[in-house]
Simulated assay, not measured.
Amino acid sequence: MSHSFHAHNEHDHLHTPHDDDHMANHEQRVHGHGLAGHAARAASSRSLTLALAITFGYALVEAAGGVWSGSLALLSDAGHMLTDSMALFLAVLMARVSQKPASSHHSYGMGRAEVVGAFINGLFMLGVIVYIAVEAVARMLHPLPVNGAGVMAIALVGLAVNLLSAWVLSQGAHSLNSRAALLHVMGDLLGSVAAIVAGAVIYFTGWTLADPILSVLVALLILNSTWRLLRQSLLVLMEGVPAHLDYNKVGRGLAAVPGVLSVHDLHIWTMSAERVALSAHLRVASPGDWPRVLAHCQRTLSGRYGIDHITLQPEWPLAAPGGRQLKVAVRASERPQ
């Protein structure tokens, strides 16, 4: 579908030194944004690595305790923690890959690796939810004896470990990748709370159905967050317009820049979890207007909408011999460094 945006007024103003000051400030903001984004990704990677160490370490302790004591409950929970460790390892790997610079094979860099990791982890969480639901139904149809006191003890230790992991992840950057990892930990945390409640109910009343019923409630809560994560990461992978931006509003904002007669072939997409890109064709009155119009458009897109990778192509009518009108397109791909 093609959209075209036209200016409501074509009043112009002269280029002044004040415009140069604005442009210099714009360059500083964009440069600062790049440094902040790199620092945020590094902090996110450190948080994910620490959470991985905590989760994997506790899984090994539980597995050893299960073998030593012969407790199937401990071994089962250790297996669950190991699967979460795999998810966190994937998140750490993708966070490291996303920090690689642009190359001749990946001209935009590897920023979308985090989004890919978030999407895979979201799919993995769907599998966990299905497993919980199937197991819960089986337990309802064929109840098994449960050691309520043992369940409470294991769940209390697991709750402490998951609270620590959740706190560590919350200190990092809130990218899609770290959100996916936090979703796994929050699922474990809710599972620990449900296990504590179920263990208490079983211990004091002997009602074993409390365990599968609370498990299903936790799975439904996780499903809501998982669906939102999958939808958002898929939007990025399909190069959709970022959810926080209004496509038509951005188009009208460009068309309102003094000197712009119309805007067409406008495209907005997400390059990575933190960066938004835009390309468009702008019709201007004359070639002499373009430098000032370009600077104004860059300030508008970066300052008002947070778009920092901008490619704009100017077009203007050119009088030809014989009275015909020819269009000349000059490509400009500029972003202040």
Rank of each mutant, 00 (worst) to 15 (best):
2 S>D: 08
3 H>W: 09
8 H>W: 02
26 H>T: 13
28 Q>V: 10
35 L>W: 09
37 G>Y: 00
38 H>R: 13
39 A>H: 11
40 A>Q: 14
46 R>T: 08
48 L>F: 02
50 L>F: 11
53 A>T: 10
54 I>L: 15
55 T>S: 14
55 T>C: 15
59 A>N: 04
60 L>F: 05
63 A>G: 09
63 A>L: 14
70 G>M: 07
70 G>Q: 08
75 L>R: 02
78 A>Q: 04
80 H>P: 00
83 T>W: 04
84 D>Q: 04
87 A>H: 06
87 A>N: 11
93 L>P: 04
94 M>V: 13
96 R>A: 09
99 Q>C: 09
100 K>I: 01
106 H>I: 00
113 A>V: 04
114 E>N: 03
116 V>T: 03
117 G>D: 05
118 A>P: 01
120 I>G: 00
132 I>M: 08
134 V>Y: 09
137 V>H: 09
139 R>M: 03
148 G>Y: 13
157 V>E: 05
159 L>K: 11
161 V>Y: 06
163 L>A: 12
165 S>V: 09
170 S>Y: 00
172 G>L: 02
174 H>D: 15
177 N>V: 09
180 A>L: 05
184 H>Y: 07
191 G>Q: 01
192 S>A: 13
196 I>D: 04
196 I>K: 06
199 G>T: 09
204 F>W: 15
204 F>I: 13
205 T>V: 07
212 P>Y: 06
212 P>E: 11
213 I>K: 14
214 L>H: 06
216 V>P: 07
222 I>F: 03
222 I>A: 06
230 L>G: 03
246 D>R: 01
248 N>H: 12
249 K>I: 05
249 K>V: 12
250 V>Q: 05
262 S>W: 02
264 H>V: 09
270 T>I: 07
271 M>G: 03
286 S>Q: 11
289 D>T: 01
292 R>T: 14
292 R>N: 14
295 A>S: 13
303 G>M: 11
312 L>C: 11
317 P>C: 04
317 P>T: 03
318 L>S: 15
319 A>R: 09
325 Q>A: 13
331 R>G: 14
336 P>F: 08
